[in-house]
């Protein structure tokens, strides 16, 4: 589904990714871990198309399409969605407007008509209940005045409604207490199926107790230096990152 090859990225003349390779197949959950500054967030931001990242080398293919040639909104409509580490507040734009405009944009891209209002209402009610969000949330401006946990739940709500093929979640666990973590993890787990892939970017192992990955990758200094199964995350939790680095240098 996603194929990243030899990806080199610079941000403001600073080289962040230095030849990253990653393949994700449908049905898989991947976790990217690594110390701060390793380039974890850069990877998902580049895939989602955020400005300010210069790809100097390498390719990103999503279902055979060249992602780097696609506009930001085209990537989202194709099924690539990024849940932000720091979701921004958008005063004046109601959640309901965002959700409906986004869903209809995706449907239009598939050649489908607009979602009928009753069906849409049913969908958002159901999904917001799943995320333990009061329906009044929908009338509020996107993330405005939301707590950290509410913002993260809102990111997952958008995923549940837009049903991406590849959901990328950047530090979705940061700033969550244990209850909120549970709700977010349940939401993410409900997305798991044979046709969908999930990419988790996280600094801590604790998220992976709730969302158990199929593959764990260690990103250090712009490259994936080690990959393994879910046990690798436990090992990292116990031993830190230094040993991986030493191993890779050696």
């Amino acid at each position: 589904m996603l194929e990243v090859k030899d990806l080199h990225v610079t941000v403001e003349d600073k080289v962040i990714l230095k030849g990253l390779n990653l393949t994700i197949n449908a049905g898989e959950v991947h976790a990217i871990m690594g110390p701060n500054g390793a380039g974890k967030s850069t990877l998902s931001a580049v895939i989602a198309g955020k400005d300010g990242y210069e790809v100097t080398q390498g390719t990103i293919l999503f279902e055979g399409q060249d992602v780097l040639e696609m506009e930001i909104e085209e990537r989202a409509r194709a099924g690539l969605l990024l849940g932000f580490q720091y979701p921004i507040e958008i005063p004046g734009v109601k959640n309901i407007y965002l959700l409906k405009a986004a869903l209809n944009a995706q449907r239009a891209a598939r050649g489908e008509g607009e979602i009928p209002a009753p069906e849409f209402m049913k969908l958002v009610r159901e999904k917001s209940t799943d995320m333990k969000m009061d329906p009044s949330f929908l009338q509020r401006a996107v993330n405005e005045g939301f707590s950290g946990g509410e913002k993260k739940r809102n990111e997952i709500l958008q995923m549940l409604i837009l049903q991406p093929k590849l959901a990328m979640l950047d530090e979705i666990d940061s700033g969550l207490d244990i209850d909120a973590m549970k709700v977010v993890a349940d939401g993410v787990n409900s997305l798991r199926n044979a046709d969908r892939a999930i990419l988790l970017v996280t600094h801590y192992q604790r998220l992976l107790n709730h969302i158990v990955p199929d593959h764990v990758h260690v990103l250090v200094d712009g490259r994936i230096v080690k990959s393994g199964g879910k046990d690798l995350a436990l090992e990292l939790e116990e031993r830190g990152y230094d040993w991986v680095l030493e191993e890779s240098v050696a």
Binding site: E73, A105, Q106
Partner: peptide
């Protein structure tokens, strides 16, 4: 940043700008 946040959900740029102008 708000324009980007809306586009990242599949909303095209003119519509993102219109939504923010209305806001």
């Amino acid at each position: 940043d708000a324009v980007y946040a809306l586009r990242s959900r599949g909303i095209d740029e003119p519509m993102a700008r219109a939504l923010l102008t209305l806001a």
